[in-house]
């Protein structure tokens, strides 16, 4: 499948913030000394009075955002995913989730595609942690177009939102101006044999995998499940009824991410054979992003392998 690279999802976030700043005077932005990397700097240049570079103090920043939200502002809060989520988890819990405040956490450098900086800067736990906080909507967009739409949706949505963006340039999946809704997945391909569910960078890999599978006579559905929480129950149950086999893929630790979320829903409502493509309970390392995605098993061939296993198991297990 042809890989046409578009902007990084973090770039789309930065541009969208500027649009939001123009439309809505209540939008304020906070960053923790990473505004050039998270791309909030553009907002800061345009609307300096509504931009707060807090310095390297993520926990304080989230607390401040809670106060701003309680006072009626719409704070967008950014840093690398690992630092923002992990350093401020108690503030996200106590100051944002518990009082159900209207705070938007948008991180960059999600996953291991961060590359050479290595494990300490890569976030593999954020989706698990953020979905654990009651009331948070949690999203992992797959390309720049989707990021832009979901950031606009996040601004409209009343309540806490988490969006993870990434560092590298990202394959283009959608035409400009495609619209998306929080909690509504996208069926990109329809097949009868297996459903490939993914978010973030793995959506492109799932599409590539579906072409390889097709060449081998396996018809796969491909679902972009950008929203991990709330899950698109209707879409998942439709797919379960049709293919009876899921492969869930994500650039995240296997414990507690998209795979776990889908498995819980499916096992309760309509069990199907399931396979997972994710990071196998380990930290990654330094290396080029593509090398790491390959080494940690997050590319199309791994999805193909799992899909074949799922199809084979379906023949044996009665579901």
């Amino acid at each position: 499948m042809e890989k046409k690279l578009g902007p990084a999802t973090r770039d789309a976030y930065g541009q969208t913030l500027v649009e939001l700043g123009k439309d809505n005077p209540n939008v304020v932005v906070l960053d923790a000394d990473l505004s050039k990397s998270t791309k909030t700097a553009a907002f800061g240049e345009k609307y300096p009075e509504r931009f707060f570079n807090m310095g390297i103090q993520e926990a304080d920043m989230v607390g401040v955002a809670a106060g701003l939200a309680a006072a009626g502002k719409i704070p967008f809060v950014s840093s690398f995913a690992c630092f923002l989520v992990c350093k401020s988890y108690d503030q996200l819990r106590m100051a944002v989730a518990f009082p159900e405040l209207n705070v938007k956490i948008v991180t960059s450098h999600g996953g291991i595609s961060v590359g050479e900086d290595g494990a300490s800067q890569q976030s593999i736990e954020d989706v698990a942690l953020m979905t654990s906080l009651p009331g948070f909507a949690v999203m992992v967009p797959s390309d720049a177009v989707q990021t832009r739409a979901l950031v606009h949706e996040a601004a409209r949505h009343v309540g806490p939102v988490y969006i993870r963006t990434g560092r590298p340039k990202t394959p283009v999946i959608y035409p400009e101006k495609t619209s998306f809704q929080i909690g509504k997945g996208v069926r990109l391909r329809e097949g009868k044999d297996v459903t490939l569910i993914a978010n973030g960078l793995l959506v492109f890999e799932a599409l590539a995998a579906s072409e390889q599978l097709k060449a081998e006579g396996i018809e796969a559905s491909v679902v972009d499940l950008h929203t991990v929480k709330p899950l698109d129950r209707k879409l998942l149950l439709e797919e379960a009824a049709r293919t009876h086999a899921f492969v869930v893929s994500e650039e995240h630790q296997i414990w507690g991410g998209l795979g776990s979320a889908v498995a819980r829903l499916i096992s309760e409502e309509q069990p199907v054979v399931m396979e997972f493509v994710a990071i196998q309970d380990t930290y990654s390392e330094s290396g080029a992003p593509d090398q790491l995605m390959e080494k940690y098993g997050l590319t199309a061939p791994y999805i193909v392998k799992r899909a074949k296993r799922a199809v084979a198991r379906k023949g044996r297990v009665s579901v």
């Binding site: 350093k87 290595g118 494990a119 300490s120 800067q121 390392e285 330094s286 290396g287 090398q291």
Partner: peptide, 25 residues
């Protein structure tokens, strides 16, 4: 910073003797 090197982008005490802490946050 190359794949497989003990010289990680940020210190990883599991991979290189002489490191007393893994830091980067």
């Amino acid at each position: 910073r190359k794949l497989g090197s003990p010289l990680q982008g940020h210190p990883d005490m599991r991979r290189l003797p002489g490191l007393e802490a893994s830091t980067g946050s």
